[in-house]
């Protein structure tokens, strides 16, 4: 029942967006905002072309590596800061202030260090994702009620059993929130990276289309990214809700 209602909600949202798009098209004109219908026609004709697939693969690869780094480093730092009080007291405010910085200002530095290839974009994506993952993991570990630890001791659990059967499941829902937000901002970082000083990837395609005033191509890439991000977010949200027993 809730599944059908959720599907209906999604459908209404999508229809609403297309209508809004059509209105914007009428106001802004053909060059700025091509019509939904012509864009969809363009999408159908160009999505399967080798050029599009090559760019899609590049972005996918960069995102994959960036996520691996962001999740790996973020989780490790988060567990460390959450479990060790002094490290947390020192590290957390630093992470919070870093999180609020506009990281795009550091992109030139990233480029100078990692070069113009794929690694620069991976690093820039990971730079975005690592902070929310670390911060929310720290929070997740701190939020574990201390009584769980005492209960574990009275239930005769070994330290290893306590970690795997109490601490891990207790922290998991909030850690997953971190992974979900981390995913969104890592994707943002990778795309931003591709938009500047890059010839490959979906971000570069958008900028290229902008310069050639190819509205349909621009919107096609946007739709693909929109669909991908929404799908991935929905999937992660689904897992998160299952973990939280909502």
């Amino acid at each position: 029942m809730t599944a059908t209602r959720r599907a209906a909600d999604t459908l209404i949202l999508l229809v609403g967006l297309v209508v809004l798009w059509e209105i914007l098209h009428r106001i802004a004109g053909e060059t700025a905002m091509p019509a939904p219908l012509s864009t969809f026609a363009y999408l159908v004709h160009n999505l399967a072309t080798p050029r599009f697939i090559a760019n899609l693969t590049t972005t996918g690869l960069e995102l994959g590596y960036a996520l691996l780094l962001a999740y790996g480093i973020g989780l490790a730092v988060g567990v460390w800061l959450g479990a060790h009080r002094l490290s947390g007291a020192v590290g957390e405010p630093i992470l919070v202030s870093l999180y609020s910085l506009p990281k795009i200002t550091l992109y030139p530095v990233v480029l100078l260090i990692f070069g113009l290839g794929i690694s620069g974009k991976v690093a820039f994506g990971a730079l975005h994702g690592v902070l929310p993952v670390a911060l929310l993991t720290t929070g997740a570990i701190r939020a574990i009620p201390p009584v769980y630890l005492r209960a574990a001791r009275t239930l005769q659990l070994s330290p290893w059993q306590t970690i795997t059967t109490v601490l891990l499941p207790a922290a998991l829902p909030e850690v997953f929130t971190g992974l979900r937000i981390g995913f969104t901002v890592t994707l943002l970082g990778v795309l931003l990276g591709e938009m500047f000083a890059s010839k490959e990837g979906l971000g570069a395609m958008i900028i290229n289309a902008l310069q050639l005033a190819q509205g349909e191509e621009m919107m096609t890439v946007a739709i693909v990214l929109f669909a991908f991000a929404a799908l991935a977010n929905g999937l992660l949200l689904f897992v998160e809700h299952r973990l939280r027993r909502i």
């Binding site: 009620p145 009584v147 005492r150 209960a151 001791r153 009275t154 005769q156 207790a170 027993r245």
Partner: peptide, 20 residues
């Protein structure tokens, strides 16, 4: 140092595990 077998404790705070 540790809770001996044979002692059971019920705490003031809710210690039920929400994921089970």
């Amino acid at each position: 140092g540790h809770v001996p077998e044979g002692i059971g404790v019920v705490f003031q705070e809710d210690a039920s595990f929400p994921w089970l």
